[in-house]
């Protein structure tokens, strides 16, 4: 399998808690529970889940900003040094949610764009200028922007600059962490279309993290649904929300506001996430699940193949 862009094996992250003076250290918060998945080259993998499900922790581990507690990451056949962002830099890049705050307010766009070229590739001045011109051309930005400062740009333009910076490192994979959630809908569509064009042009692989199911469905080949730090379902974008196997995926799909669907509260039971300091045994979703039985509160279900290419972690999956 040489055409895998990303292979993640048993990746997990536990944030330690402060050790009390006289007692043993508490077990820590498991932000991401061990998970494994593959992403073939050229694919867009959507990652959805609600706040607190571990999306951002996963993303930060994948780009090396956080050191995983267990597991390893393999990018395009290479195993970068975990926890060293510079080693990850040429292989994988990150586009941040808030486009303005990801740009240093005291640097010109040129200085921001030059950093990856100089640090990762050691390019000379003339070479850098041509490369920046190429990249700016492909993200539809004018070169005169290069000598301005970040506060002079609108959110949509700043996000293009963020994407341009990620492209400058010529990575295999780009992790897009809620790249359009801070943008207006009319601008959001521009950025999403740009991303689709760039993927084709440069043969990129995307990990697209978002809480907006409709956006994820529109851009992704496959979608991973996270809940409470674990993968609950993986499947093709066309089928996962239309024919969900896991009750949580169904809840998400039913909650998304859709023009023409009458307003219903899809869930009236407890809506709180489980306490991360004291996780329940068994399936984390059992407390909110209409299908939960005793086995759900006892055993944590494993991710199993259901249907042709859909995986779900559920004892009582929804049958077609």
């Amino acid at each position: 399998m040489s055409d895998l862009a990303l292979k993640v094996t048993d990746l997990s992250k536990t944030f330690p808690l402060a050790k009390p003076l006289f007692r043993a250290a508490p077990p820590g918060v498991r932000a991401v529970r061990p998970m494994s998945f593959d992403v073939p080259k050229g694919e867009t993998l959507g990652i959805v889940g609600e706040s607190g499900c571990g999306k951002s922790t996963l993303a930060r581990m994948l780009v090396g900003l956080l050191t995983p507690t267990t597991g390893h990451i393999q990018i395009a056949g290479a195993k970068p040094d975990l926890g060293d962002p510079a080693a990850f830099g040429k292989l994988i890049q990150y586009v941040f949610q808030d486009p303005i705050s990801s740009l240093n307010p005291r640097k010109t766009i040129r200085q921001i764009m030059e950093a990856p070229l100089r640090q990762l590739y050691g390019m000379a001045r003339a070479e850098r200028d041509t490369r920046i011109a190429q990249i700016f051309d492909s993200v539809n930005l004018r070169e005169e922007f290069l000598d301005r400062y970040p506060h002079e740009f609108s959110g949509g333009q700043a996000q293009r600059i963020g994407i341009a910076r990620a492209l400058a490192a010529a990575p295999e994979i780009i992790v897009l962490d809620e790249p359009v959630s801070a943008l207006d809908v009319s601008v959001q569509a521009q950025v999403l279309n740009l991303l689709a064009d760039l993927r084709r042009e440069f043969g990129l692989t995307y990990l697209f993290i978002s809480h907006d199911l409709a956006v994820v469905e529109a851009v992704s080949d496959r979608v991973v649904v996270l809940y409470f730090g674990a993968v609950v379902e993986i499947g093709r974008a066309e089928t996962i929300f239309n024919a969900p196997k896991h009750p949580y995926t169904k809840l998400l799909a039913d909650s998304a506001p859709v023009v023409g669907r009458p307003l219903t509260a899809p869930e009236q039971k407890g809506t709180e996430l489980p306490d991360p300091l004291n996780p329940p045994p068994g399936c984390a979703f059992a407390g909110r699940c209409p299908r939960a039985t005793d086995i759900c509160r006892r055993d944590d279900p494993a991710l199993t193949l259901m249907g042709d290419d859909q995986f779900a972690a559920c004892h009582h999956p929804i049958e077609d």
């Binding site: 609108s154 949509g156 333009q157 809908v185 009319s186 601008v187 959001q188 569509a189 521009q190 999403l192 279309n193 689709a196 199911l213 409709a214 956006v215 469905e217 529109a218 851009v219 992704s220 080949d221 974008a237 066309e238 929300f241 239309n242 799909a253 998304a256 859709v258 023009v259």
Partner: peptide, 18 residues
């Protein structure tokens, strides 16, 4: 411009400009 759930993978309509 607004993608709607259930439409599958597609190119979105965008409004040019700001």
């Amino acid at each position: 411009c607004v993608p709607e759930l259930g439409g599958g993978r597609r190119r979105l309509e965008a409004i040019p400009g700001l």
